[in-house]
């Protein structure tokens, strides 16, 4: 983890706020003056993880840049639910173009600002996993390769939710989607497919790559803040449960995200210049089943039990724990 946790026990070590800390040292989300970049009245589903993740990330950027920023949004849920004509839920300068070109548009915005000498205004590009991992991937790779001064934030809900839950390159193995039905001998999304975009971003050797989760706000804000102190191409991949597509209880959005972290399926780490530099330790390790059982998209693995699939998914979690040393106390 990229910051020192302060022991405050119930008064706020892991909670959003902490009445014992000075206002300026609290999380952005605890502040009465937070931007609320994505305002009330947006049309995201009940318990939307992406709406939450976007506000967490953008409010932190707003604080880090002293409100000098512009966001470029790819097509996807986040764009659709926030800006049905003529309404907008955005309280920040915000731009939408196409599904596949958000990184390229952001590169252009950054170039324009540089040309105008306004380098204090920072550029954020954001999209869902579909726009990032699949459709806009070429533009994103180019943005990384040119090391354009853009922070790209991917809100990963592991499928195309806005269009009705179709599989993406980020859909996990064995998950149900409308295009990977739970039928046949290997129901759900096949094993061994998909992309690990944080690792791909690292392979570009860009200055900063991190993963984050809506389940750990302190960690997420620390990473966003840190990324804004760096110039060049940066990438943050945020895990955001989708109650609709994951068939989970809207009230469980954060719980599900937390179990993804605590099981090791979604490792929280940071990388600089292509090398892993830090990771957030698992506090209470849980078996992957605890994560899977809260989501209807994995029902077919548990009723009846599919031991080989469960074993394979547990092996993925264990490999992450091993690779990122998620349990050990030394980095």
């Amino acid at each position: 983890m990229s910051y020192q946790r302060v022991k405050f026990y119930q008064t706020g070590t892991f909670t959003v706020g902490n009445r014992l800390l000075d206002e300026s040292d609290r999380t952005v989300q605890a502040g009465m003056d937070r931007t609320n970049s994505l305002d009330s009245g947006h049309r995201a589903c009940q318990g939307c993880g992406e709406a939450l993740g976007a506000r967490y990330a953008l409010d932190a950027v707003m604080r880090a840049t002293h409100r000098q920023m512009v966001a470029v949004n790819a097509t996807g849920c986040l764009e659709v639910f926030s800006s049905p004509y003529p309404e907008s839920a955005w309280q920040i300068p915000w731009l939408h173009s196409l599904f596949g070109n958000a990184p390229a548009v952001a590169s252009g915005v950054a170039a324009a600002l540089r040309a105008k000498g306004k380098t204090d205004i920072r550029v954020i590009a954001q999209g869902g996993d579909g726009a990032t991992v699949d459709i806009g991937f070429g533009c994103l790779s180019g943005m990384f390769e040119r090391n354009d001064d853009v922070l790209y934030v991917c809100y990963d809900n592991e499928a195309y939710m806005n269009t009705g839950v179709q599989r993406s390159g980020s859909t996990p193995p064995r998950a149900w989607t409308n295009t990977t039905q739970a039928v046949g001998t290997d129901p759900g999304n096949p094993m061994g497919v998909g992309k690990n975009l944080p690792r791909i971003a690292m392979a570009h050797g860009i200055p900063y790559v991190a993963t984050a989760s809506v389940a750990d706000l302190h960690d997420l804000e620390a990473k966003v803040t840190k990324s804004m102190a760096i110039r060049g191409a940066r990438y943050i991949h945020i895990h955001v449960p989708c109650p609709l597509g994951w068939k989970s209880d809207p009230a469980h959005t954060i719980k599900v995200a937390r179990l993804a972290v605590e099981s090791g399926l979604f490792p929280l780490f940071e990388a600089e210049g292509g090398h892993v530099t830090d990771r957030t330790r698992i506090r209470n390790k849980v078996p992957v089943e605890r994560y899977l059982e809260l989501q209807g998209r994995f029902n077919h693995l548990l009723h009846p039990r599919d031991e080989s699939a469960l074993g394979a998914i547990q092996a993925m979690a264990d490999a992450n724990i091993n690779l990122y040393q998620l349990l050990s106390s030394e980095a």
């Binding site: 959003v16 706020g17 609290r26 999380t27 989300q29 605890a30 947006h42 709406a51």
Partner: peptide
Amino acid sequence: FECDTCYGVCPDNAIIKLG
């Protein structure tokens, strides 16, 4: 105990922090 967690986790900014 005023930990701000409800205020933070609402995806709809529908919790008002009163101070």
